[in-house]
Amino acid sequence: MKAPAFRYARPESLDEAIALLVEHGTDARVLAGGQSLMPMLNLRLLQPSVLVDINRLPLSEIRLQDQTLDIGALARHAEVLYSGEVAHMAPLLKLALPHVAHLAVRNRGTHGGSCALADPSAEIPACALALEASFVLRGPRGERRVPAELFFRGLYETALGADELLVRVDYPRAQPGWRYGFQEVARRHGDFAIAGLAAAARVEGGVLREARLAFFGVADRPVLVRGASVEELRERTDKMEVSGTRVYPPPFRRRLVRVLLERVTSSIEK
């Protein structure tokens, strides 16, 4: 089980990286942390002709801005997990990250890589959706911002063009009165979830008044449900389409979705 032959480039600047993407288009793959790409290469599920290793690019910074907390695409999961600013300004990520794979994978896997891959069972895209993050993409025509709701487009499909690089994910700073909950159902710690929920909610006097629930592992992409009360969230969640497999059929996943909703909202209201 060895990776197929490919060519490798390691740009030292963003412009170089984008030039490579422009040149090689869909034949190229961006190598960030590699924690999903490398297995696919080793299994020969992908055979790109060029790997563009972006690990030398200056995209690792976690920076607190006036309105946002900006996480560089190359920030490793472990750096985000142990960041004091993340704990303070995007606490949902701190709740979610211990569920992302395992220690060694978190040491290498990147924030941007997880988003750009858009695995429907992944935790970070759901958090980005619940937190209304915006994705900063850089291409030959400069930068553009895409809100999370428009970024995730389907199974392993995002708004990223073949000649674009995800450089940053900007999270609105956590606001007073907002609380966060995260739970997932997995048979083993660190596995991709059978179903999971990342939630942000405004609570007044112990009562949920506004919430954004991002379910993951239940469709081809994370699914956002908004509501102004738990009752409304229940109604809307029940209407959500849920996919399944032979082992985890849709009715089972649907039950998990309901259980997650109850558990997360009650933990938030507590």
Binding site: G34, M38, N42, D53, V105, N107
Partner: peptide, 29 residues
């Protein structure tokens, strides 16, 4: 396993344990 699940290939890269099967040798540069 060569797909990042088993951890038998763990090595320390710049102070942090990583999967040796999910990192390219060229990245050790």
């Amino acid at each position: 396993c060569e797909h990042g699940v088993c951890g038998a290939c763990s090595v320390v890269l710049d102070g942090a344990v990583v999967r040796g099967c999910l990192t390219l040798a060229v990245q050790a540069d």
